[in-house]
Design a protein around this nucleic acid. Structure first.
Lengths: 223, 223
DNA sequence: TAGATCCGGAACTGTTCAGTTTCGTATAGA
DNA sequence: TCTATACGAAACTGAACAGTTCCGGATCTA
């Protein structure tokens, strides 16, 4: 069993090494770039999404990244740390207020969030999440990395949209922002993980019109 | 890797064997009871909840059930089938209409569903679910078994309560029953799996008052 | 071109675990 | 009591895989 990623006292080393290597020792025969890192991390995420943590082997990651296993271990001390790093380095999408849609209505904003790109991205993240679940309960670092990289970005976007709707007087100020901000993610993970059904545009629209908007006093339950 | 449970053409054999063994061959020196089955299945669920599918070893299950590994393999052809059987044989709680609370209000009914026993049971099921996720995407039988034993009972209970509320005119008939019936489960799994936070009475009450009731036109968003 | 360094590939080690086999024992029916 | 059978325990087999080691070639600097 590989509980190894569980209790690490060395997780500090990771970032430390990264910084050090990137800046120091320019005297040598070659830049100590770790040029292959992005390829390897991307490969790790791919394999993770496809096979899950337990099904993922270092061989698979190496092969997919056209690298040698040795290269992986030169850079990360274990499979667990590689995965944590891969999650942490995920490009965690749109968090900035100004990049968010602002259509004037909550429904407009929520619907505007559903772009093909977003659905694709979301599905991939759900799959990665699914692949992580067994490990998450054993590794606090991994749980935190996943929360920051996958859950928070979308949750905080939703929080902002809801708050704007409150500010403009569109919805009541005492609605349950915290829960509502993660409803769609929860339902999406449930759908992918448990029901094995696709998460598509219709699903999200149905959620907005059937749950979120009614829950803030807009939509069908009032009409 | 143990994808074994994936494509089985023999899952019929399971129940067939059960029935056959229970009734046939009373000629022998001992009833062919498979007396140890319940202990073993219970042990399997325990280990599953604690360590997940990948972490669970046949040794653990045998030890916990005070049985030998050989006994397990005499009864089930593989680890995958044992797990499927364990899930399928789970006592899937209150599904009958008459056992459900009927307090006269939707809120009363939903709150009445939250008994300490239910929370405990729910938490255990969430953990088992968490332990299954990696395998669910590879085994349709397992996915189906989990849906029937874990998801459906509660979802259909919620559907009934919502329908009753509609019938008595308490809530609008065009509310999104299908989605609302799985909101609390989705959020609970999300909370356990991803956020690693406890699922307790307050959480469920918060969900009822902050999401479900507002979404059907009752509760804070209307008041 | 020479020297240092990084990389990919491939062979290797050790462990874990699913599944098997064997054996001594307990038990229920004749 | 005798006999057939199910059982627990323990040893065993074989495969998969994390992590290591070694080497030959590529690439950059001087």
């Amino acid at each position: 069993m590989t509980l190894d990623a569980g209790q690490l006292d060395t997780e500090q080393l990771d970032t430390t090494q990264l910084d050090t290597n990137a800046e120091a020792s320019p005297k040598l025969g070659r830049k100590r770039d770790h040029t292959r890192d992005p390829d390897i991390l991307a490969a790790a995420l791919d394999v993770l999404a496809e096979t899950g943590y337990e099904g993922m082997t270092m061989e698979m990651v190496a092969t997919r990244a056209k690298a040698g296993k040795a290269t992986l271990y030169r850079r990360w001390p274990s499979k667990g740390e590689l995965v944590i790093d891969a999650i942490a380095c995920m490009k965690h999408g749109d968090v900035d207020r100004d990049g968010l849609p602002d259509t004037g209505t909550l429904r407009g904003d929520l619907v505007a969030m559903i772009k093909p790109h977003t659905i694709e991205d979301s599905t991939r993240k759900m799959r990665i999440m699914a692949g992580l679940t067994s490990m998450i309960s054993r590794s606090p670092e991994l749980a935190e990395a996943a929360r920051v990289a996958i859950v928070e970005p979308r949750a905080s976007a939703n929080r902002i949209l809801l708050q704007r709707a409150i500010d403009r007087g569109e919805i009541s100020a005492d609605c349950d922002i915290e829960n509502l901000a993660v409803v769609s993610q929860s339902m999406a993970i449930f759908r992918v993980l448990v029901l094995q059904e696709p998460v598509n545009r219709d699903f999200f629209i149905g959620l907005i019109d059937g749950v979120v908007l009614p829950a803030v006093g807009l939509g069908r339950a009032r009409s």
